[in-house]
Design a protein around this nucleic acid. Structure first.
Length: 217
DNA sequence: GACCAGGCACATC
DNA sequence: GATGTGCATGGT
């Protein structure tokens, strides 16, 4: 199993090279992106982040202070702007009250403790929490998303209905706990997912080869 | 016009 | 625990 996961990684890395994730100038911007990208195309998230930057609202305290409506308007292009405005507010409330408004103050804490705390914030689920832990806080936590499950199940490594935690445990126990490996691997999965694993996959040219049994639609 | 995108909370069974 | 639904924009 170890070998399979590594083999997939090597094939993806050979095909696509380093992905340079996560796009973002600061840990806070990374965290904001993680919330805004929920069920949303990254291009739309970039527009929203640009709006925040242009309005000088890309810091914990500014988002803490502005009104819900102002915030929602700025992030409108990322979709679900009302729920996401709430979620960003919840996150900065958490940050301000527990960490004096800075992700830096989270750095020294244990990943499991941080994860549990993040999951208490309404609007932050497992994938978002893990993205923040890995890409904003450099914690060795593997991020699972829809593509990961789709690819692994189509290649017969997990069952179709495997849970998030099961899937994550697979990576944690069968790969060396290497920050850079986790970082790159997830990014590569998203890359190959976007290009080859959508509903009408062009798996002919996929670097991972065809899925087991040609079961794509 | 339909379908999809780097989810999550909440209601219901 | 599993399943269904609302949330909303912009690209293909």
């Amino acid at each position: 199993m170890n070998k399979k996961l590594l083999k997939i990684y090597n094939r993806l890395y050979d095909a696509f090279g380093p992905q340079g994730w996560w796009p973002g100038d600061t840990p806070f911007e990374v965290a904001v992106g993680a919330i805004l990208t929920q069920n949303t195309n990254w291009q739309n998230v970039e527009r929203a982040i640009k709006n925040l930057r242009d309005a000088r609202c890309l810091s914990p305290m500014t988002i803490f202070k502005i009104s819900h409506n102002e915030l929602a308007e700025l992030i409108r292009p990322s979709g679900y702007f009302n729920v996401k405005a709430l979620r960003l507010k919840n996150f900065v409330d958490f940050l301000v009250h527990q960490y004096r408004g800075s992700l830096m103050n989270m750095q020294h804490e244990d990943a499991d403790v941080l994860r549990a705390k993040l999951l208490q914030v309404k609007g932050i689920g497992k994938e978002t929490a893990d993205s923040i832990l890995l890409y904003a806080l450099n914690k060795r936590v593997f991020v699972i998303d829809a593509y990961t499950k789709r690819i692994l199940s189509r290649h017969g490594i997990i069952s179709e209905d495997a849970s998030y935690d099961e899937c994550q445990e697979l990576f944690h126990s069968h790969l060396s706990r290497d920050l850079q490996l986790y970082n790159e691997y997830h990014a590569l999965i998203v890359r190959v997912g976007k290009e080859f694993c959508r509903k009408r996959p062009k798996c002919k040219d996929c670097p991972l080869g065809r899925d087991k049994g040609g079961a794509y639609e």
